[in-house]
Amino acid sequence: MADTAALENSKKIQTLRKSPASLLGKAFEAGSVAGTVELREVPFLTMAGLRVDPAGEAGERVGAVTGGLPAASGEVRGSGDTAVLWLGPAEFLLVAPAESHDSLGGELPRALIAALADGPGQVVDLSANRTTLELSGPRASAVLEKGCALDLHPRVFKPGTALSTEIGGIPAVLWKTAEETYRVLPRASFAEFLGRWLLDAMREYASTEVP
């Protein structure tokens, strides 16, 4: 555990950092259409890349910390506000609130590293690798459908599903957290592009419908 002085210092530094899509914060507010489709960035979520064989001993130990590891494409497992997304047969992405990071007094990813110990696999802090854009509202799926070839029909794509795919021509993880809420996780360098792309796709819903 970090000592108190280091933690205070670390918190001070955190106030200076900028999230990848912070530049677009105002544009997201302006481009959101209340009750139709809204976009915001959820910055600085704690993320950790896990590569471990879920059937092995090390996988079980890591799974005990995260509340299970997903077994197949699309699955999301986890406990509380910590979620583990399936990226590959032995590759997972853990997403947790910003406060869970050990630089802010949390336990992650330290607890995962301890759980893996010297077992085969790896735990990497990927908190700065991706950012999270949250798209919500009754038109959210219509916006995504403009640039995502997946079947997003609610009958097929259910809440609590996350898929690694292409959105607007760039690789991103698409995670449906609620019936009308999607989290899109692009890599940091793609965040601005995808933010602008989503704003453009949302623009038509701001104007009145043409009969």
Binding site: R51, D53, G56, G88, P89, A90, E91, P120, G121
Partner: peptide, 10 residues
């Protein structure tokens, strides 16, 4: 069946 998890091998 899914391919072997190469990434997990140390």
């Amino acid at each position: 069946t899914p391919v072997s998890p190469e990434g997990a091998i140390k």
